[in-house]
Design a binder for these strands. Structure first.
Length: 883
RNA sequence: GGGCGCUUAGCUCAGAUGGCGAGAGCGCUGCCCUUACAAGGCAGAGGUCGCAGGUUCGAGCCCUGCAGCGCCCACCA
């Protein structure tokens, strides 16, 4: 037994930090561009979805990073020039909110500081606290090219944003206009519709009577937002609605404000809904705004930025919108104009940042004319230049693209890319590629637009700005389009769509060839993790307790593409057990290895179990490659888990213990080596450590003297080896396995202790005997058999009988077993066998089965039937023998 | 209101092109500290594959309908 440099216990915490810095120091994460393809290596690039600077690692990030890291590591090992581009998002609203909260603690607001000082303060905060999440990514094992770290708000990315804004403006794809937008009265900014979350909230539908101008009954309208009636400038009915025909062109009186408003006919009104008459508030409802446009109605904004009522609301000025709602209902009721109030759930928009109910509101904002951009994006998905994994996600994405509104990109915030538009003294707008000089500003009385851009505007450029755009860099030449964009399906609309649009616009090519969607991490019962449920689990805690490898394995293990990923502590614990198993298996191999190196390759002559394990290895390798092609890391991990634990450890290792030949050691080493390679993308740390040990490297990487020129992280991926497929060895080994299992079961059924050795008389016939012959040593060891002979006459004395394919094994018993129990067991088996035989015979008696089913299927069924018949015969004989 | 997904063992999930004598992990039961690993080994119990029809020689898998759960999207006041 040789000395090995692996500690007895698997200690992920120590190992992971050490191995990570070793990789990092040696620069394995860094990739060099290859713009002219001189290296002949296929480029591979993934841009990391930039986490918010304010963020800290949650399970969603952990899943994202694990999957992307696994893809990048695999790409590296199959010889691609792989780069993973990391960075962070300045995250406009989110970050501004965080710093504003800080200020609030100090008792001041951003307005006390002023714009410039506030922004300086946010930068300070960013330098000090931001980016914690990237450190946490390292603990997870992320092999990102940190030298290329980008920030959506740094100098270079800002230049890119400026250029895109100006280009779009010059192309007529950005405009400023007055539209209904979603306004957050707490964040005090416009939001795009995508930043609004709709929930079904309890509410009410109120019916109000608007009397006619001549004092007659007028019309009854329905609304869920009573207070907006103060901004009504018309009532609309369907043009073909007979009930209201005589009112069209006339007017009604808006109660409380006594404003006379026209009744207009508009086909958008659904006569079937409610009373068929609609109040029209162009300043506070998108539909009404359109009706207003068609009929040239006034728009009356009745609210302040904080969603209290303004002077237009007359006597209600100064009230909060909900207070006003109640007050107005009371007042209308007093006038006899409140017809009814019915409780009713209805969809309400909430700010995705702070959950405040948003107010649809008429406002002057900057917009991206989305149609031309969205059409190109949709086309790229339809013609397959970018494909989705899983494919089904493309449909929803396309539906969404086909029904887009113009994108509101201006935000009334301070933290973000300021809109490069200046107004002169006359209010004339100029969008400028360079900031105007001081003289110019003074001479023309220029002032810059106060607004900043939606944070998604800059992240939309991520796949090429991370590569240096707008400069023409070798990076860009090498890695654009990116290979894969990996993200949760929840931000396909926010982010993926915009990257596609901007990529096609700026680069004239898709930003990535594949959109790979993972699911959401959920708790053990598939419930969403949320603070209010109290079921949030912190990945960093798990990393500390179980190791990053275990967390990665647990996450990936249920991460089928697009499927949600349930996670619980026991799952991670189970994954660590797997790492531990691997650790111990490697320790055993290392102690056994002597001077054998995995580089020696396979021996020329091999035993049955050698050929079997190699055949199984090849089969695992094929499954893993197939799963990787489908981005199905769950299948990858399953295949490897099963191979390592159930085949390599449980069978091959146990058999190898019997042997002291060099051949067994060489097989042991080669199989371990390849298994470690294939596991590396998922559990990088433990595999690197074990692989180094296997290749005789010093255990202490910290004191690495450079003599080790190799590292698993950049070792080649196992190549297909169809020659290792060995159906005969598999079949033969299966027989061995069956004999061992059956004998073990016999032992367990009869309560025979493992220490008790057995004698076996095998009644098998020459053919089956020959099959088992090669595995006899194994059977002896694994089933605790002392003596074994083949004898068709069977055992002479009383014996237990164990069914195996092609015959039975007799175990002389010396009268120590429970006869009744044995009879019962045989009866149970008989029943099962008889049922199976009936099933098979019915099938075979069916002419259409025999004539129509493929010949091998029919033959297999016949063989099954014969076998069950023999089993029944044997069991019957056994039962008789016991009496 | 539209679209999508899910429904298989107590729990969480696998089950290419229909051939299943339905699997895994965890949990459970029994035996075992067998010199890689008790974070382990061996053996076992546990399933009318949501329901109803249909196609087929054959359906967990395909078709139709229904039910339940979940998600995304949505300007019916």
């Amino acid at each position: 037994m040789s000395e090995i440099n692996l500690p007895k216990t698997y200690d992920p915490a120590e190992l992971e930090t050490r191995v990570y810095s070793w990789w990092d120091d040696r620069g394995y994460f860094h990739a060099e561009p290859d713009e002219h393809g001189e290296t002949g290596r296929e480029p591979f690039a993934i841009a990391m979805p930039p986490p918010n600077v304010t963020g800290s690692l949650h399970m969603g990030h952990a899943l994202t990073s694990t999957i992307e890291d696994a893809l990048v590591r695999h790409a590296r090992m199959i010889g691609k020039n792989a780069v993973w581009l990391p960075g962070m998002d300045h995250a406009g609203i989110a970050t501004q909110n965080v710093v504003e909260k800080e200020l609030a603690k100090e008792g001041c607001s951003r307005h006390d500081l002023g714009r410039e000082a506030f922004i300086a303060r946010v930068w300070e905060w960013k330098e000090e606290y931001g980016g914690k999440i990237l450190l946490q990514q390292r603990r997870l094992g992320a092999s990102a090219d940190w030298q290329r770290e980008a920030f959506t708000f740094d100098e270079q990315r800002s230049r890119a944003v400026r250029k895109v804004f100006c280009d779009l403006y010059d192309d007529g794809l950005i405009y400023k206009g007055e539209r209904i937008i979603n306004w957050c009265p707490r964040c005090l900014t416009a939001l795009s519709e995508i930043e609004v979350e709709h929930t079904e909230d309890p509410g009410e539908l109120a019916e109000l009577r608007y009397p006619a101008a001549d004092g007659s009954d007028g019309v009854i309208v329905a609304t869920t937002r009573v207070e907006t009636m103060l901004g009504d400038t018309a009532v609309a009915v369907h043009p073909a609605d007979d009930r209201y025909r005589q009112l069209i062109g006339g007017s009604v009186v808006l109660p409380l404000l006594d404003r006379e408003i026209p009744v207009v006919a508009d086909a958008h009104v659904d006569p079937e809904f409610g009373t068929g008459a609609v109040k029209v508030t162009p300043a506070h409802d998108p539909n009404d705004f359109e009706i207003g446009q068609r009929h040239e109605l006034d728009s009356i904004d009745i609210m302040t930025d904080e969603a209290t009522l303004n002077t237009a609301a007359g006597p209600y000025e100064g009230l909060d919108r909900y207070t006003a709602r109640e007050r107005i209902k009371q007042d209308l009721d007093a006038l006899g104009l409140l017809v009814s109030v019915t409780e009713r759930e209805h969809p309400v928009g909430h700010c995705s940042r702070c959950d405040t109910v948003v107010e649809p509101r008429l406002s002057e904002q900057w917009f991206v004319r989305i149609r031309p951009l969205a059409d190109r994006a949709a086309e790229a998905v339809r013609d397959g230049r970018t494909r989705f994994v899983p494919e089904r996600n493309a449909k929803g994405f396309l539906d969404w693209l086909d029904n887009l509104y113009d994108w509101c990109i201006s935000r009334q915030l301070w933290w973000g890319h300021r809109i490069p538009a200046w107004y002169d003294a006359d209010g004339k707008v100029a969008v400028l590629r360079e900031d105007p000089s001081g003289e110019e500003v003074a001479a023309r009385g220029l002032t810059q637009d106060e607004d900043v851009l939606d944070t998604w505007f800059s992240s939309a450029l991520w796949p090429f700005t991370t590569l240096g755009w707008p400069d023409h860099t070798p990076d860009l030449e090498t890695w654009y389009p990116n290979s894969v964009l990996e993200t949760g399906y929840d931000i396909n609309t926010f982010w993926v769509s915009r990257m596609l649009m901007m990529g096609l616009y700026c680069m004239d090519d898709v930003p990535f060839r594949v959109v790979f969607n993972h699911g959401m991490v959920r708790d053990r019962h598939g419930k969403k993790m949320s603070k209010s449920f109290g079921n949030v689990i912190d990945p960093v805690e798990f990393i500390e307790e179980y190791g990053a490898d275990a967390l990665r394995f647990a996450l990936v293990r249920s991460a089928s593409p697009g499927q949600d990923v349930p996670l619980a502590e026991e799952w991670v614990e189970g994954a660590r057990r797997f790492c531990n198993k691997l650790w111990n298996a490697a320790r055993f191999v290392l102690t056994d290895l002597g001077d054998v190196s995995p580089d020696e390759g396979l021996p020329e002559t091999m035993e049955l179990e050698d050929r079997w394990i190699l055949s199984r290895l090849e089969s695992a390798r094929a499954s893993v490659d197939a799963a990787l092609a489908d981005y199905d890391l769950a299948a990858v991990s399953r295949a490897l888990y099963h191979f390592v634990w159930d085949e390599y450890c449980d069978w091959y290792l146990e058999l190898a213990k019997l042997r002291d030949d060099r051949g067994a050691r060489r097989v042991l080493a080669v199989v371990l080596d390849e298994a470690l390679r294939m596991l590396h993308p998922i559990t990088p740390f433990v595999t690197e450590e074990l692989w180094q040990a296997l290749h005789g490297r010093p255990g202490d990487k910290a004191s690495d003297d450079g003599q080790s020129a190799r590292a698993l992280i950049v070792e080649p991926w196992p190549a297909p080896a169809p020659g290792r497929r060995d159906a005969d060895a598999e079949a033969q080994f299966e027989a061995v396995r069956e004999a061992v299992t059956e004998l073990r079961r016999f032992r367990a059924d009869h309560g025979l202790s493992p220490a008790r050795r057995l004698s076996v008389v095998a009644v098998l016939g020459a053919e089956r005997a020959a099959v088992l012959e090669g595995g006899l040593d194994g059977i002896r060891r694994l089933a605790g058999v002392d003596s074994w002979r083949f004898d068709d006459a069977g055992s002479s004395g009383p014996a237990g009988k164990v069914a195996v394919t092609g015959g039975e094994l007799h175990v002389p018993l010396e009268g120590l077993i429970d006869l009744d129990g044995e009879r019962e067991r045989i009866s149970r088996e008989l029943e099962k066998a008889e049922a199976e035989l009936r099933r098979a015979r019915t099938k075979l008696a069916n002419d259409s089965f025999v004539s129509k089913a493929p010949e091998p299927v029919v033959r297999a069924e016949r063989e099954k039937a014969d076998e069950w018949a023999r089993t029944i015969e044997r069991l019957t004989a056994q039962r008789v023998a016991l009496d």
